[in-house]
Design a protein around this nucleic acid. Sequence first.
DNA 1: TTCAAAAATGAACAACCTGTTCATTTTGTT
DNA 2: AACAAAATGAACAGGTTGTTCATTTTTGAA
Lengths: 194, 194
Amino acid sequence: MGIYADKNRKTKQLIQRSFMQMLESKPFESITVGEIAKTAQMNRGTFYLHYTDKFDLLEQMEQQLFEDLGSHIDELQSRYSVMHTFGEGQEELAAALFRSIQFHVPALKIFLGDHGRAGFHIRFRDALAEKVRSHLEKDENFHAKGKVPMDYLLSFITSAFLGLIEQWVRNGLEKTPEEMAALYMNIISFIQKR
Amino acid sequence: MGIYADKNRKTKQLIQRSFMQMLESKPFESITVGEIAKTAQMNRGTFYLHYTDKFDLLEQMEQQLFEDLGSHIDELQSRYSVMHTFGEGQEELAAALFRSIQFHVPALKIFLGDHGRAGFHIRFRDALAEKVRSHLEKDENFHAKGKVPMDYLLSFITSAFLGLIEQWVRNGLEKTPEEMAALYMNIISFIQKR
DNA sequence: TTCAAAAATGAACAACCTGTTCATTTTGTT
DNA sequence: AACAAAATGAACAGGTTGTTCATTTTTGAA
């Protein structure tokens, strides 16, 4: 093995594409391995040559999404690491974030909706929170502000951000990433004017 | 029918209790009707006398949760309707909210986690958002602040709040509702100090 | 081009789950 | 006690699962 990596990758991609296509019209639970194979026009046994389960399939796709988005975010963080978390470049950073998320919307639309797998939003949020945590910890201004437990703060912030993304996806991406970033800033300042 | 309502209710409760008990140790997808019946020590056919599906069962339980929590919130809103949304009584209102949620934590713990059904957090958030919307609309201070689309604002706020709840549940309810309310206020003010 | 290894196929398999039916028994109400 | 609703047990066909095995197709390298 290893020499036939291309072939295997292609087959896996075919399975994944077919699977995603089906997930648009029916929920994960009601999709059978047989149907996936039929859609991908391959033998059912071939599926089991690459995945142990339909759960395994979805898990690998989730993992892949997290890795892809994670490396995007890492890249952003190194580029914006100079700025303070709540400083000048916040809107710019947010826009960049919305931009990289926009790229993965087809998958997110499915995984976050009710055709995906239970608990995805938590796994996604946790992955996001980990990135935000390391970003926050580099901000020397952060520590002084104390008083708020990190886990709750992260859960609050990332959930709120994810909520915005969900609404964005639900509205059919009718706004540009830059508009979303501006919207984000407006909401923050709205909450300030209590 | 109707005369035997008690008997039916009891059987349904037995099914629901058994179901919830199983959901603590295994995910919804892997639970079979046969297992539910076995746990509840009844014939499999009896299950089908009360629910068409295991999906039907979960749906009814979700619905029930929304109704219960919804009426609690309605009650709160009428009690706190005098105050402005972001006014003095906000912390008190938040505490009351956390208190009524605390009551439903056993169910929420399951439904929000990865043993539940996909998309629950969205359905829950939507139900919550509807309550918050009507509350916001009564606040005459709200309209003037404009500039932020209602749907995004609601999604942001309710997701953030739900994120706090999720973290609370995850941490095993180690804080009182009042502490959570204080925490909530602290986070809000933390975000202000940018 | 040839050839061996890897991948895909088709078919079969037992085991399980589903939803429904039906005759029978148990339970609750009057 | 008598009637009606609820629960039972058993059976049913239809479908899904994951695995096996012999066979064919595809692939990359000699």
